[in-house]
Structures are given as C-alpha cells and as structure tokens.
Design a protein around this nucleic acid. Sequence first.
DNA 1: GTGTATGCAAAGTTTTTGCATTCGA
DNA 2: TCGAATGCAAAAACTTTGCATACAC
Lengths: 155, 155
Amino acid sequence: MSELISQAYERLRSQGGRMTNQRRLLLSILDSLGEHPTAEELLLIARKQDPDLNLSTVYRTLRWLEAENLVSARLFAEERRQERFDAVLPSEHHHFMCTNCKNVIEFDTELLVDIKSQFQDSSGASVSMGSIVLYGLCPSCRQGSVAQELDREVG
Amino acid sequence: MSELISQAYERLRSQGGRMTNQRRLLLSILDSLGEHPTAEELLLIARKQDPDLNLSTVYRTLRWLEAENLVSARLFAEERRQERFDAVLPSEHHHFMCTNCKNVIEFDTELLVDIKSQFQDSSGASVSMGSIVLYGLCPSCRQGSVAQELDREVG
DNA sequence: GTGTATGCAAAGTTTTTGCATTCGA
DNA sequence: TCGAATGCAAAAACTTTGCATACAC
C-alpha cells in the first residue's frame, strides 16, 4: 500500500477518525494520479466510481489531508483562483506550467537550498520551505507556438 | 515621474485610453506603496482620497495594468484565494512570507537563472519567467516564536 | 449505540460583467 | 462630442458551513 494511504490510515486511527469509501476512493486517485487535479477535476474522476460523491466531501477530504501534511494545495498565478492539490512527496518538488496548454511539469532541484540559505543569511529569517513556479512553453507547444498563441488570443 | 506612471500614460496614449482621476490615484498608491496590497486593501487606502471609488474600478485598473505587464498578480498559497498586486520592477523579484505574521519580504537572487536553465535543458521547455516563494519565520517572529505559534493555533 | 463523515443546500468570499451614466480628450 | 471608464448591482467562480442522515467502529 502506498505511503499516502497507509499514512492516512495511521492518522485516522490515532485521532479516532474513520476510513470511509469516499476517502478511500479519493486517496487512491490522488495516489495514482500523475497530475495536479483541482477539487472539481478530482470529483469528476471519482464520480466514475461513485456517482453520488459530493464536492464538499472532496474539499473536506483535501483540507483534512492538507492539515495532516499529506497533500499540499497550490495556486498557480495564471489560473486566478482555483487550487490544485498534490500528494506531498518525500522530496520538495517544484512546478513548471505551460502558458499555452496549462500543463504542469514537476521538477526537482538541489539549487533551492542555496537560495534559501542566501536569503536566510541576508535577512535573518528562518526558512522552512519554499516553492518555485516556472512559466513558459512546454516542448510540444514550442513547435507551432505562433499558431497556438494566436488561437489563444482570439479564443 | 515614476516609471510605472509614465509607462501607464504612454500605454494609454498609444491605445486611445484615458487617464482618469481614479487611475491616477491608484497608480500613485501602487507606485509609492512598499507592500503587496490586495484589491480590497488598495481600495481602502484609495478611499481616503476618493471615498466614492469602487472595487470594480480597482480590479479593472489592476487587470489592465497586469495585461500591460506593469503590475503582476501573485497568489501566496497560504492565503487561499486573495491575490496581491505588485508594481513590476525592472528586475525579477521574489517573496518570503512569514507564516506567523504574514508579512512579506521581497528578495532578489541570481541563482534562479541556473534553475531555469537546468530545467530547460532537462525538459526541452522554454522558460520565460519564474517565481520563488519562501515560507518561514521572519526575524522578529523568530524570537518568542513559541508563544506566538500557540496564539495562532488557538486563535 | 455513538459520534464521525456525508450529502445537500445555503452562505461566504473573491472576482467579473452588464448597463446606464459620467467624464476626458 | 463621443467613446472610454466608472459606479452600481447582479452574477460568476470557487470554497466553506449548518444540519439532518448514514455509516464506520
């Protein structure tokens, strides 16, 4: 069983919570999904298996997981308000978002620690975490980017 | 006259737009403010000089400035939905947010270019911009952080 | 059985939009 | 003058909450 799911069971047990079908379903989707779904997207996927699942259950589950630090919510500035949810991976990871097709690519870097310590040294703050978001064109949108850019502008 | 304001005049002239009192006021606040106001905060400040100013005018002005690349909108994940607006500085700048007092500190770094090129090389994407957000405790919250953390949890 | 989690509907929060009016060039 | 910008109110988009019911333990 995956780390996410076994951790969730553990937390539930230790705080007297319950493992419901809804939570099991959402956890398994979050765990296997190689994407960063919004709450709505998650609902749509989950409803293929449980058509009665409710959006507020999705939000409540995500917020609980977030509070437990098993999932993190991210806002990409390009999408005004909608949050995207990530299963928290063992290593800090960062994101690239294609400004054309909106696809997200995760990446890792060891260089952030340098930025952190640079900032800590100069400011006197203590940094506990950090995240990077990069924007640009993904490989497939680089080709034919002119046509696609036009499409998007005219839309 | 500041870069922001003169640029705004320039853009208006070239696209047949008009410099209204409302825009002038908002521009001068954005220009002088050493903070990252939300639309609502900007409205409150502006209303000291023009009590009739409307929130939708603030949003429309900010969105126009954003489209002109004179202001950038940022979402800090810690605050769920509210955007903060920045006058765009000549150099890319990044943010640290104190998880305790929510204050924001800007910083610069030359190290992001390395992360960009690292990612470009490995992914084949072309990166046009990027932003870093760091979280932690600011210098003043580091002292007495225990008491303050408790305060926040109990809230 | 008991209390946690759910579904539903209503409310909350932030941002956008339609329309009549005002105002800058 | 006349079209761009504003104020207002209503809608839209996203998220949270209250409450009665269902269900995990």
